[in-house]
Design a protein around this nucleic acid. Sequence first.
DNA 1: TTTTGTCACTCGCTACGGGTGAGTGCCAGA
DNA 2: TCTGGCACTCACCCGTAGCGAGTGACAAAA
Lengths: 344, 344
Amino acid sequence: MAFDNLGEREKQVLACLISHYVGSADPVGSRAIANKFKLGISPATIRNTMQDLEEMGLVLQPHTSAGRIPTDSGYRLFVDMLLGQVAISDAEKNAIDASIKAGTGGVESVLEQTTRVLADLSNQLGVSLTPKLDDSVLSRIELIKMADGKVLVVMAFSSGLARTILLEVETQIGETEMHVMSQVLNEKLAGLTLGHIRLTISERLAGTKGNPRLLRLFVDEQSEMWRNLELEKMHVGGTDNLINQPEFSDREKLQEVIRLLDDRNDLITLLRETSSTEGGIIITIGAENKALEIQSCSVVSAAYQAGQTTGTIGIIGPTRMPYGKLSTLVKYAARQLSRVLKSK
Amino acid sequence: MAFDNLGEREKQVLACLISHYVGSADPVGSRAIANKFKLGISPATIRNTMQDLEEMGLVLQPHTSAGRIPTDSGYRLFVDMLLGQVAISDAEKNAIDASIKAGTGGVESVLEQTTRVLADLSNQLGVSLTPKLDDSVLSRIELIKMADGKVLVVMAFSSGLARTILLEVETQIGETEMHVMSQVLNEKLAGLTLGHIRLTISERLAGTKGNPRLLRLFVDEQSEMWRNLELEKMHVGGTDNLINQPEFSDREKLQEVIRLLDDRNDLITLLRETSSTEGGIIITIGAENKALEIQSCSVVSAAYQAGQTTGTIGIIGPTRMPYGKLSTLVKYAARQLSRVLKSK
DNA sequence: TTTTGTCACTCGCTACGGGTGAGTGCCAGA
DNA sequence: TCTGGCACTCACCCGTAGCGAGTGACAAAA
């Protein structure tokens, strides 16, 4: 869509309209804009401009003789072309910094804290994904012998994540045998990303000597070992913030979103795709979202670095959200997370 | 309160009233009871009985000239004295069994699955707690050396749980030194419950030789080691079920409950206390709950066994819930969980 | 004495309808 | 090209009337 023909006045009016609507949640009329923002033009002129904006599909009237509200395209244009840098307060920065410091206990807890703070500061839903395990470099793998033929596999990654999986091995395995196996696995697998390992493990372990029962558990990609590995975990915070939003006064809509949050997998894939592009902030508005359940929502997210891997942190809320402030918040949180986690 | 003087008729009417109200969510009138349940008495008689029940505080009228709804005490009496064994269908049993088998990947995933199924079957909120780590017997502890002075502590428990904690040690520690330390820790700590260990660790490790920096992390109860240990994890499923309940059409109430779910810690302590009594089902009705946020809710929960430890699984919903069916469901789920997890 | 049928009364809920006000589109004039 | 004015639209508010489910009370029946 070519909106290059958009005049300065149209842009101004659209920006004012959105700015006002984000606060009020009510259709915005020409008089309201004229009064609140001193644009030096009369309500009548603004009305004309709004008609033009409506023809372009950037705003719409919920019913005749009501004010205008922005459409998804309206927000899109606003976000792409009109979004200035919005500063956030020192208090907000401090809150984020504190949350990152507070959760000293590994990546998971840092993420949980930060997600919650992000939700509190934004009054929206905060979400985050742990770094992608598939892109994480395995720094150490260890087998620990448990009682009655069970083996605990511990994998530690350079992104600061660790995973444990309890395997049932049908035969008894000696202490030393287990030790040798640990060493072999480390030699052959450490330093590679998990995704890489999962693809190539059968070749890499081919010809390895060791307990065949145990070996099979690693090579067979249908085994418990790989099926039970949680590749990504999600943290959610501030669900209650959604309930106050007027767009969720409709029970159906609220229910859809809550169901999506409960059904973690769907949201995980959504967020992972969303943030696939590297670097800055990604804003997905309304119907641009692939998941039907949140087509009345927008997602503001950013990737953070942890080790050689990236994770995602972001905010979800109704399309009527203060994009400027939220993207600054998310950007700041992602940067601070990266700063702390990169070195871990 | 002595309700022993409650006549047969009063009991019958109360049971009918509750049974009807659970389905309709509307105040129940005398005619409705007379029509639906063939008690062989007329509406007028039922009215008289209901007046008696109201004087006893078992039912109340939301306003003059409306039907009656049960009070918390009404439900309490019903649950204590009038609750027959309600059978659940084979399909429901199968669903629970399948969820337990599906999550072969350790305790956590079994719990997650089962909680969700419980929520689906009951149309309420499903919740569960992992087995109490403090009562879990440490079966193995292992230190794994990571890059740049970090140590991964792995603790495996006989309840099938495992925990990893990444510690920052300020000095470099040799591979063998670490190994020795692991062995010492295992000798001194394995076989004890975590709660025991936490209380007595300083004496147990006194006089131990080894890297003092590393040792201090274990002995000092303020260290990251103990602060970051998640003693209990909670799983929640079916949040969206709550939204449809008419008692949550009030935004405020819904928000309070959702906030409690988000704020995991509060709910964890609530559930832990709730299920402290061993054995069967525990039903906590309305204002009997200690947390203000859910004083309009009831909790049906049961303890399950995992190793030597117990965890909790249950259902949360409005006080207007089918107590008979839900307690059978929870009881069955807890029993099946115990069967699978006890041996793990 | 207990139960039942009846009747007057209460009160929440819904539907109806006029009044209000915010907001628009359009047109004529600056 | 912009502005002021004007007629028109329509959601929203609010008071009222009617409906109906349900009660309490009382007198008659069992």
